[in-house]
Design a protein around this nucleic acid. Structure first.
Lengths: 218, 218
DNA sequence: CTTCCTCTAGGGTAAATCACCTAGGTGCCT
DNA sequence: AGGCACCTAGGTGATTTACCCTAGAGGAAG
């Protein structure tokens, strides 16, 4: 097995050092280059043709999403692992659409990072956290074109989003029920469904979800 | 000259690895510990009494600002270098008020990071980017009491902000009580006080307050 | 037509929170 | 020394949520 060649792209030198510390040398892997923005990532990928590209999303000049699109079009053999701080469903969708096969958070353990690179290198998708749920939630339908209205909140129904908004705006179940003219138990059921769907465990999680997905504003 | 002992605090393992890669061994320096949140940073600082504490701002359980306040009060000999992605004047002001003597961005070069630790170790302030401008802009008026920037979080005590963070991160009263080692009833009392002080009426209001005031992030 | 999803709503029990109250100890400032 | 803010913590009772179920009506999709 030839040694795995990894290109890393992150505008933060500190993170690049961290990636080097974690990935370089690991099981015969080698970091073949470092890019400080998306544009450079595209250039270096063209030159170096790495097996795996570990890339941040928010970078100057050209963001990781655009860079991924360009690279995946030109170099289908190079697999892209997106490394980001953000965990929003919208972003996961865009990442998938851009052609990345992996999505991992900067807050995840480096063990997970290694596992992700390992999977990606074998052309297996790798997603963490909510990302995996979005994928499992039927986002990927092989052969099918990606769902069109996928940028929003594909997993919640209109009614559920309505409920989310009312609840996260500070209304109790009872108040929401009154506003909607339905039973408290119904709101309760919706609430439970929503929590389960999104794998959340507290109202505050729900509020953060709502803010991240621009259902409400902080 | 005795070797410099550095404690690092960041919730991202990747960043900790990066910090290790950059700082450990550098000119006889040694990383004496790693904290994954502000609370642990306070604990470890108490135990290890490091010369320098390199600390992130946004961390779970207890953010870097609160941690800095507590540490600077208890261990004036330990200098705190704030390491963050955010570059806002408001934050710089808060950092200064909290007692940190240094402020550096994650996007800065690691060379600058080393220089910052060097300066901090000799009890010289070190600020980069807009931070330095804020400092030079007369934030520090020797002799004068620090400007009463009372618009933000003057109304909550340190303990209350601590509680707010825990609650808005999704912990129940009981869980918060456990992490703080106090009674549920105490948390309950704090909670009621906070709600009353801020004239809020639901947990979700509290979450939005916390996000707006950067106690936590969405 | 059957199946699946959504919205609706109920029962029941356990847990948590809200909204009141009181009150002791500590530390700081005057 | 006294006052004051803060942290602590208990009581009580009402209200709300959490979490487990079931289940019918209506619509969309197979």
């Amino acid at each position: 097995m030839k040694p795995l060649r990894i290109l890393i792209a992150d505008d933060h030198e500190l993170v690049r050092k961290g990636l080097r510390a974690v990935l370089d040398g690991q099981g015969g892997w080698s970091i073949c280059g470092e890019a400080v923005n998306g544009r450079q990532a595209v250039e270096l990928a063209r030159q170096l043709k790495p097996d795996v590209l570990v890339m941040d999303v928010t970078m100057p000049e050209l963001n990781g999403l655009e860079a991924t699109r360009q690279i995946r079009k030109e170099l289908p053999k190079t697999e892209v692992l997106i490394l980001t701080v953000h965990e929003s469903e919208q972003l996961v969708g865009e990442v998938l659409a851009a052609g990345a096969r992996g999505y991992i958070l900067k807050g995840d353990t480096t063990r997970l990072l290694v596992a992700a690179v390992e999977a990606i290198a074998q052309h297996k998708p790798f997603f963490t956290g909510t990302a995996s749920e979005v994928v499992l939630g039927g986002y990927f339908r092989p052969g099918q074109p990606p769902r069109k209205e996928s940028r929003d909140l594909p997993r919640l129904t209109a009614r559920e989003r309505e409920i989310v908004q009312l609840l996260t705006e500070g209304r109790s179940n009872k108040e929401a029920a009154t506003t909607l003219g339905i039973s408290v138990k119904t709101v309760d059921a919706h609430r439970a469904n929503i929590m389960h769907k999104l794998n959340l465990h507290s109202v505050t999680d729900l509020v953060r979800y709502a803010i991240r997905n621009t259902i409400i504003t902080a």
